[in-house]
Simulated scan of single mutants.
Amino acid sequence: MQTTIDAAIEAGKEIMTIYKTDFDVAYKEDESPLTTADKRAHTVIKAKLERSFPDISILSEEGNHLSYDNRASWDKFWLVDPLDGTKEFIKKNGEFTVNIALIEGESPVFGVIYAPALDVLYVGEKNKGAVKIEKASQVDNLNKVFENGTKLPVPAQNDNNIRVIASRSHMSEETKQFIQKLTKEYDEVETISAGSSLKLCLIAEGKADFYPRYAPTMEWDTAAGHAIVEAAGGKVTTAEDGKPILYNKKELKNPWFLACREK
């Protein structure tokens, strides 16, 4: 745990050194943006994980994407998004994260999300729970996060309202329809906007009730947040039939999904 958290925070520091400059933006084949920060964060995380866990493979957004034939035999692997929310990074609104998840079989069992501009860390582990740590880079011993962090979900002050979280960059027509349906079922529905995997973190915290995602995501976008949501008692399932979201698929793109907080 300490190694993974250290990797996320060190990657966050690399990201922030770029964030404070007038950086250049390149574009991948799918037209998604790429910055030097993405590459530096990937290098930091890869080096730390390989040094401590040489027998566990790494699948990173910014690394080499092996074919399914090469990945199919993996029973355990790291799934990494070195900089999730590059669009938010470019906008300089602070809502971007470092995501590291451990996948066992087809399910995320451990997740770390670090928001470097906010200096907030989220950690979730199957059968152990989920926590949030403020001012994470200033904490000396993060190996005891489950003892010292704020346990998630945080008890709600007013649980009468329904809160739906939607992407700042990806508000689809289907998401609008989902929200419209809720307004017919509940007296008051509030829409919350956020970027990157912080949307899943807000579900884990209990600050939002639903996160419908009717827009494209990849496995590395969701794995860490998925682990944290489930460790906090919530669910992340396919939007179509409520089945579990699976990882290390032949096609790394996720189906549309719905995240719900603990009830």
Rank of each mutant, 00 (worst) to 15 (best):
S107N: 14
D119G: 12
K243R: 14
E205C: 11
E104M: 13
K28P: 11
K87A: 11
A130T: 10
A37N: 07
N248W: 00
P255H: 09
L182K: 13
A215G: 00
S167W: 00
L202G: 00
G195R: 07
Y247V: 04
F53R: 03
L118M: 14
I133C: 04
E173R: 12
Y247S: 09
A41G: 07
T183S: 14
L121N: 03
G234M: 02
G129H: 08
D187I: 04
D140L: 12
R40F: 11
T150C: 03
G105A: 12
E188D: 13
V189H: 08
D69C: 01
T237L: 14
S52K: 15
A101N: 02
E106S: 14
G225M: 11
N143Y: 02
F257H: 09
L49S: 09
L246I: 09
E50I: 07
D159F: 00
P54E: 12
V154W: 01
G242K: 08
Q2G: 01
V236A: 04
D22W: 05
P108M: 11
E106Q: 13
T21W: 04
G206A: 07
I58M: 06
Y247R: 10
S107K: 15
G234C: 06
D140K: 14
V164D: 02
P82T: 13
V109F: 01
K235N: 14
L118N: 10
N254Q: 14
K13G: 05
T97A: 14
E185R: 15
L202Y: 03
Y211N: 05
K46E: 15
T86I: 06
L246K: 14
A166G: 05
F257T: 06
L152I: 13
G94V: 06
E219W: 05
E190I: 15
S73D: 12
D6S: 13
G129R: 07
A7H: 01
H42T: 05
D81A: 12
A208L: 05
A223G: 10
A41C: 12
K199E: 05
E219S: 09
A130P: 05
C201H: 01
A130R: 05
N248Y: 02
L49V: 09
A259L: 06
R163Y: 07
L202R: 08
Y186K: 13
Q180N: 15
K207L: 06
N160H: 12
L202C: 02
P216I: 06
S107C: 10
D84T: 14
D6M: 08
P108S: 11
E106T: 15
P216S: 06
Y211W: 10
A130S: 15
K92Y: 07
G111M: 04
I9D: 01
L102W: 02
D81G: 07
A224H: 03
A231S: 15
N127F: 10
